[in-house]
Design a protein around this nucleic acid. Structure first.
Lengths: 222, 222, 222, 222
DNA sequence: AATGAATGAGTCTTCATTCAT
DNA sequence: GATGAATGAAGACTCATTCAT
């Protein structure tokens, strides 16, 4: 019943504050180019304190990546599996909503970070592949397959389709932390929700049965 | 008729050898994590020699990026503009061939490198945007617009389409130097030519006029 | 009343310890030939610590020079201006005492150092000229002029006299850190106080009014 | 009788050209801060050529110092010993002429260089002491003693007098290559001949027998 | 003889990590 | 727990010297 003291609360929040700071800086500048003192400063503590919570800079990287994004992927799986609309709608509506959330979360940076640091830290590659890429792809593959099973989509190799769907979504996140962050935002990518939607609509059109009347999504006025 | 001496020949080849070595290592490990001595060693020379040809490590990075890829983009523009087939064919055939060449060239690494280092070196962002992104997008936009003008494609916002087309192509190159290089090759992405083709066919299907019979590409057996 | 901890005390003393070490080594070996690690070692710290207090070796040089000597010059001005004896006495007695103090202080090395490094660091030239040379010369010029005004000295161009007076004093300091430090001490210069005195007596004799009886300094037994 | 070819002439002149270049640069920047390639460039040859004539940079320094100045000192001794005027005249006239020649010769830089590098190269100290300092002082000591023997000068310790005479002359040369070279020329020292003369006149006055009428130098207008 | 490409030891400087306070 | 002074290994870059041409 006793309130945790302010200090107590700070203490418990520290690890997360440090991870947030680390993630932001690693995404921005890269692991090697980020000084651990910068991470501490951004989290509002001193250099020494960082080492009370994490044994090394490398450990900080791994924790930051591990902790972020996996949850978002899992959440996506839950939503999609819970959903019971037609597949076209799910493909466009649900996927857009889900990814817009990811886009605006700190997790969006993990794609860039993982790509960048993977080759220097092989454990990262394994983790990223197993915890992010595979579940993510499986998630979308399920969605696509369901649509084929229901007759909404043509029967083509689902794995190819999955990548046509997901790769722009990922690169959009990467773009946010590279070109866009440098002020070179492509106009098309400045409104992520719209871009994602249009992209998925185009894919949807490519997937649809030739004869099937486009009745599943009514009025997609932009 | 006099042969250039071996030493002479090496001297002229040195800058390119160093740039090649630098590009490969920077793409693999990142700029900050690559030691300049490693670059020299990979080019078969000593540390000091590197500095005979490039004034600093940073300069080496910029030169390596500048020199690669721009030519490939320009080449793509030439091919596409010279081509006079129907747009569907160009979208699938010509784009696939062009990108497969890029995928297998050292330039493929530049996408990853640019993404990674851009925020640390703003000049890189400007260069990459102006010399790679804009020409590349313009190239594809021309192709798409042409197809709309000829009645082959539906009239939708071309910029969105461009990104749906190109983003997987770019991420495929990035993938080559990240997950794939770590041994986590997604099966679908192991045969780039096939993946690109299937991706473009899916987009093509999404672009095509509803009533138009799919006769433009005869026999697309996989 | 609480004692500053040993660590605390060291921290405050560090900059001066480093400056002392730097001055000694730069005077001995020259700026370029002194390794920054040597400076640190002489101050009893490690390489890295040096850079906690000074941003660069060059900065260390400038600080070392700036900090030393100016105070001695100012002190000289104070003494002389406060003094109210006859000019002959001041010329010989006060000047000797003042310069003997300089000779035995670490500041004596600054003459050599400034001469040596000035051309590589133009700011040093400006500083040395304005803070050392000009005040020093002005000081002695005042003394000489006073003697002329009082009728003790002949009226001749004071600026020439100033240099005849001061140049041996300066070169004596330089000598301490060059030939003498190499073991080639000229016998005459081994007793700086005596040499200075004899030099100033000779100058005094050259300055004195022909008819003036040499009563101002009684008994100059050496 | 055959003219040496141009190439021949160059070849024979090379060592001296290199020594001149080396001396100028070492005096200006110091030994450690001068790159041997700079020396070669100033002499109009390539780096490699330097090493055809001198085995090392250090050797170049020693040769440059050894070769310069000793001759000037010897020449001074010859002139003075050959001269048969009264000592006052010699002190002022001959010494001024001699030193003005030194001041304007490249040898003037050797004083600064020797002072600067002596402690890093002990052989230099020995050489400089034996070949420059001692002969130079002996020369002036002879002059002074002669004047005492002839009754023109007071009998005081000649060694002190020697240094009062010579130290400003030396420092004047040092000044030429330090403050003056940096654009901070003291007005008094801008006309070396005048300064030297005035300095020597002042010393002369200090040396002269009290009762002796100043007839030895007639009309010393300025 | 002359050149200048190449070398690698040497130096400045940074920064992850430790530890006394 | 928190701090930040101290460390020293590591890395960018320089330059005296060599040697193939």
């Amino acid at each position: 019943m006793s309130e945790p003291s302010n200090r107590q609360r700070r203490k418990e929040a520290r690890p997360q504050e440090l991870l947030d700071a680390a993630l932001a800086l690693f995404v921005e500048k890269g692991f090697a180019a980020t000084r651990s003192e910068e991470v501490a400063a951004r989290a509002g503590v001193s250099k020494g304190t960082l080492y009370l919570y994490f044994p090394s800079k490398e450990d900080l990287l791994k924790s930051a990546i591990r902790q972020t994004l996996s949850a978002e992927i899992a959440e996506g799986a839950r939503i999609l599996d819970a959903h019971t609309g037609n597949s076209s709608q799910m493909l466009v509506e649900v996927l857009t909503d889900w990814w817009v959330r990811i886009y605006h979360s700190p997790g969006s940076g993990v794609f860039k970070l993982a790509i960048t640091e993977m080759r220097n830290f092989p454990e990262l590659a394994a983790f990223y592949f197993e915890e992010v890429v595979q579940p993510g792809c499986a998630l979308i593959a399920r969605l696509v397959t369901r649509g084929m099973d229901s007759g909404e989509f043509r029967r083509i190799e689902p794995d190819h389709v999955v990548h046509s769907i997901v790769m722009p979504l990922i690169l959009l996140c990467v773009h946010k932390h590279s070109l866009a962050a440098c002020g070179f935002a492509e106009p098309t990518l400045q409104h992520p929700a719209q871009f994602i939607r249009q992209h998925l609509l185009l894919i949807l059109e490519g997937l649809r049965q030739a004869q099937a009347p486009a009745t599943s999504l009514k009025g997609l006025p932009k």
